[in-house]
Write a protein that binds this DNA or RNA. Structure first.
Lengths: 189, 189
DNA sequence: CGAGGCCTTGACCGCGGTCAATGCCCGTGG
DNA sequence: CCACGGGCATTGACCGCGGTCAAGGCCTCG
């Protein structure tokens, strides 16, 4: 359980055993029920999650109640409502377990403490930021230049697990289209 | 000229005079003509720019030749094709001077050298990344939840300089709508 | 003074949304 | 174990936002 997180971290930065113990000591375990919310709209983002099993999603809700998903985190991935984390303002993003999910989480307070205690953690955070940046910017690009069908095909190429594992409703919310449209796209091939 | 950059940096990190001299020594000055491209499609991003005067934009071109603008950098702002910078892959993003523009730029080689030489520069980069992340994620959100008119009004609120200073064509490319639609939106108020 | 680019506007169209009906699957409780 | 209910997927009918294309006028700059 913690080994999964430890080996994830070791792939990104080099730390010795005592440092690793320090890092792991800041993380706590939690089981989440399907559909359980871990961050509500307007709350400040307080925790960073690492998924052991299951799936978290980060999403928006507009005034009419329509949901749009910005990110899915599966096993062995981190998830944070980063904008609220960075700006320390109330979050526009919500966060929810999509399946029964097990996570390790660290409070933002302790996250920042690690930044001070371990120079290496600054690098870890930087690389996390870089990945998050590349992800979102690629998504932004796809909204600029691709129509619905192209986005769907692209998703099948780049991230098939999302289509295979999740409901149409969730996939549609990720692509920013309606469930009905996704259903028609799939029918047409 | 260099003072502008120096005071920008001092607002973000604390460095002494020798360190500042080191940083500034890596930047070079360049004048750009209106419409001059500083990064072509498919090139690797090689430089980070700081705008002294004028305006740079970072944009995409789709297969039909339609342009979409991801970012405008005005006086006293940085601009990089960050995705290509991070991934070291050919850039999907192009970069161009929108007006006659004066910049200071640093090669990525030297940027990385600074990361090694100055621990503080790691923090500078991290904060740059954070800002870029927040920017793009907010834009992504606006594509999820806002229609054309809402996006336009929001832009007027958040970033009026773009509307005031740039042509309709450029503003439309920033909003991801056609020039004709923007013209109609403005007419309707 | 001419040419080219930009803005506006009208006519038209199509992608993708909405709404509703139907059917399916699955979880839950009697 | 079966019956019921709720959520999800599919599909048809309809519609509207925003795109495209083209024409006309204006401004800028060489």
């Amino acid at each position: 359980m913690e080994e999964l997180l430890a080996s994830y971290i070791k792939n990104v930065i080099s730390v010795n055993d005592t440092e690793m113990q320090l890092i792991l000591s800041f993380f706590k375990f939690k089981k989440l029920k399907k559909n359980e919310l871990v961050l509500h709209h307007g709350e400040a983002s307080q925790r960073t999650f690492f998924v052991i099993k299951g799936c978290l999603r980060i999403f928006y809700i507009d005034e009419q109640g329509v949901e749009s998903t910005r990110y899915f985190a599966f096993e062995n991935q981190f998830a944070t409502a980063l904008v609220s984390f960075i700006t320390a303002k109330p979050s526009e993003e919500l966060m929810q377990a999509v399946e029964p999910t097990e996570v390790l989480y660290i409070s933002h307070e302790n996250f920042y403490r690690l930044l001070e205690l371990l120079p290496q953690w600054e690098k870890f955070y930087r690389i996390y930021l870089e990945n998050a940046y590349v992800n979102n910017t690629n998504r932004l690009q796809s909204f600029f230049v691709q129509d619905a069908l192209t986005k769907y095909r692209y998703l099948l190429e780049e991230n098939p697990i999302i289509v295979q594992r999740l409901s149409n409703k969730l996939v549609a919310s990720y692509l920013g289209i309606s469930q009905a449209t996704l259903s028609r796209l799939k029918a047409k091939k």
